[in-house]
């Protein structure tokens, strides 16, 4: 048994620094399996009441990082503070404050019915949610009396979410929360996660859905080979590099030298295919104005003119390499 921190458990929430510092602080985290570093000097911070999304290819080290934060695995080096506490040393004080959704399913008594399991987890908490209400909320009322092993994959995922939330945690770890959910359930879960944030719950989530990360996260952390390769708000990540492109259609064979001259330094123009033009350069109003002015001067009507910005997917693939397909 770890040492019992009975007082910490029973004391009401204290408004001291432990309750106002970052929700999660990881620095220089290292974890190896069989001599291979799967988390390699990872550092990240999550402010209270915010959402951080960990992105990265399969095997990047997301689950390992999360499970170290949850106190399931022991780090080889580095420090981890969860709500100001050490996940291993202060486990007894920390566990009641966090909600956990594991990647590999509900992971609890499969012979129990959905309702029974949620009631059991509710009994661990001092101020649990009303379990019937929570089941309704995640759309499981109809299968409340079904044994966990007979639930569908998406239903298990919903139950797993409810189990993570039932104790009114201050911080939740959601490892691929919407994996296996149908589009409606996914939207519902997004709404629910936004609601968590609005009510002051801090959220760590992992996902392979870039739109999920873009829509929910305050901060996105892109991980590759156990290292952080990019951090920032979704907007910052997309802006980073600031490359943009403008495409339009016009009669083939326009003389592009004058266009290149009209553009500011660093931008370039080319005819990708007969009649299809591409301008790349820093995305700015001037770039668009220069292109439009040049077309006007040439007496050319540009059709299908489109300013394209980099998507998060472009950034992600760039950061984590093309080895996905290798």
């Amino acid at each position: 048994m770890p040492p019992q921190a009975t007082h910490a458990i029973l004391a009401p929430s204290r408004p001291d620094e432990a309750a106002s510092g970052p929700a999660l602080e990881i620095s220089g985290l290292i974890k190896s399996y069989a001599g291979r570093r799967v988390v390699d000097g990872l550092t990240l911070t999550l402010a209270r009441g915010e959402i951080v999304a960990l992105l990265g290819p399969n095997g990047a080290g997301k689950t390992t990082t999360i499970e170290i934060s949850e106190g399931f695995r022991r780090p080889d080096a580095g420090t981890v503070r969860v709500l100001g506490l050490d996940p291993l040393r202060d486990a007894a004080a920390l566990k009641p404050q966090i909600g956990v959704m594991l990647q590999d399913g509900v992971g609890a008594y499969t012979g129990a019915k959905a309702r029974e399991l949620l009631d059991l987890f509710a009994a661990y908490a001092a101020h649990p949610h009303d379990t019937a209400e929570l089941l309704e909320l995640v759309g499981l009322s109809d299968v409340a009396g079904t044994q966990v092993k007979r639930l569908s994959g998406g239903q298990r995922q919903r139950l797993s979410l409810a189990l993570a939330l039932v104790g009114r945690p201050a911080l939740v770890f959601l490892d691929e929360p919407t994996a296996g959910m149908d589009p409606q359930a996914r939207r519902g879960t997004w709404g629910l996660i936004s609601q968590l944030r609005a009510d002051g719950v801090s959220v760590v989530l992992t996902t392979h859905l870039l739109d999920e990360a873009e829509q929910l996260a305050d901060t996105i952390v892109v991980i590759n080979h156990g290292r952080v390769v990019a951090t920032g708000s979704p907007a910052e990540l997309v802006r980073a590099g600031a490359e943009g492109q403008i495409r339009f259609r016009a009669p083939a064979g326009l003389r592009l030298t004058s266009l290149s001259d009209a553009l500011h330094a660093g931008a370039s123009a080319s005819e990708e295919a007969p009649g299809r033009y591409l301008i790349t350069g820093e995305r700015s109003p001037q770039l668009l104005a220069s292109v439009a002015a040049w077309c006007a001067a040439q007496g050319v009507f540009a059709e299908d003119l489109a300013v394209e910005r980099r998507t998060l997917e472009d950034v992600f693939l760039e950061m984590t390499g093309a080895e996905l397909s290798a």
């Binding site: 458990i9 029973l10 929430s13 009641p96 001092a126």
Partner: peptide, 18 residues
Amino acid sequence: MTATVSYVPAPDAAPRSR
């Protein structure tokens, strides 16, 4: 999944007897 519930944190362990 409509959200009308409050998630304001109130984390604490239940009494051991419960």
